[in-house]
């Protein structure tokens, strides 16, 4: 498989990959197309494949009004990642390797937890936050957003950590390492892929959250981009160019982060962490 056949096969794969991406991202192109289309042309029949008579109003509005919201969203996303990891990593380790009593029950709780409708969660948070004074704070929103990711993260860590060979841990323990040190120096480095996967999800969920932000951070001076977009949706009118333009602009830093994260996964693998 790794013989001389390799090179042509791979070039062929690149072409297929590009085609697949093009198909997958067609709706994204369409969004971009709409962001540049004049309101009068938006519902043209047949639709315009290309915004040959573009308007930049949407971008002007988005750039002028949404940059602070963008920064807030990035911050909230990163905060959510940190909190999720802090709660979920030890728990995943415990469930996968230390086998506390009641681990099975915990599985169910995590599954059920994820089924609670977001709106009900939001109502619960509202009642709690109003008493704690956490309404309209970024910290409060980070905590709320983390509930989207924590059950998932624990389940995923558990699944991945279960695959780490027991012998590795046993060896460390023979060397005199305690549970904490085993966790830190064996488990964590070996969990790099799953940590990055979880981080990605935690970030994306926080990034796209609307319900918590809308319930808990309405009156705040700092609002995330998902709320920011709503200034373009008036009572009876909708400014589609601005909405789509905001989505385009907001995707750029997030896409950048994605590419970096993906490189890390690749690096982790080539470093051969798991195999050593």
């Amino acid at each position: 498989m790794r013989g001389p056949m390799k090179a042509p096969t791979r070039a062929w794969k690149t072409v297929v990959g590009v085609v697949l991406v093009a198909v997958m991202l067609f709706p994204v192109y369409w969004m971009f197309n709409v962001s540049l289309t004049k309101t009068g042309d938006m519902r043209a029949d047949p639709p315009h494949w290309f915004p040959w008579d573009p308007t930049f109003e949407g971008y002007a509005a988005a750039l002028g009004q949404q940059l602070p919201a963008l920064a807030t969203s990035l911050f909230i996303g990163l905060g959510t990642v940190a909190l999720t990891l802090v709660v979920a990593l030890p728990a995943g380790y415990s469930l996968a390797k230390l086998r506390p009593r009641g681990a099975g029950v915990m599985d169910f709780l995590l599954l059920v937890a994820q089924m609670i409708p977001a709106v009900v969660m939001a109502m619960g948070f509202y009642a709690i936050y109003i008493r704690l004074g956490l309404l309209n704070t970024v910290a409060g929103l980070i905590v709320a957003d983390s509930t989207l990711a924590v059950p998932f993260a624990v389940l995923l860590f558990r699944a991945f950590m279960a695959g780490i060979p027991r012998e590795l841990m046993a060896a460390a323990q023979i060397d005199g390492a305690g549970t904490w040190r085993t966790f830190r120096s064996i488990i964590l480095p070996l969990s790099r892929n799953s940590v990055i996967t979880v981080s990605l999800f935690a970030f994306l969920w926080a990034w796209s959250d609307f319900i918590f932000a809308s319930t808990l951070n309405r009156n705040s001076d700092v609002i995330p981009i998902t709320l920011g977009i709503f200034r373009y949706i008036g009572n009876n009118t909708t400014q589609w160019n601005s909405i789509m333009a905001t989505a385009v602009i907001a995707s750029i830093p997030a896409a950048f982060l994605l590419v970096i994260a993906q490189r890390y996964i690749a690096a982790g693998v080539t470093a051969g962490a798991v195999k050593d």
């Binding site: 509202y126 309404l135 309209n136 319930t215 951070n217 309405r218 009572n235």
Partner: peptide, 20 residues
Amino acid sequence: ARTAAVLALSALAAACSSAP
């Protein structure tokens, strides 16, 4: 738009948070 305005107002709830 209409129903929505109703819904909208509900969100208002969060608004007043600065004065609990």
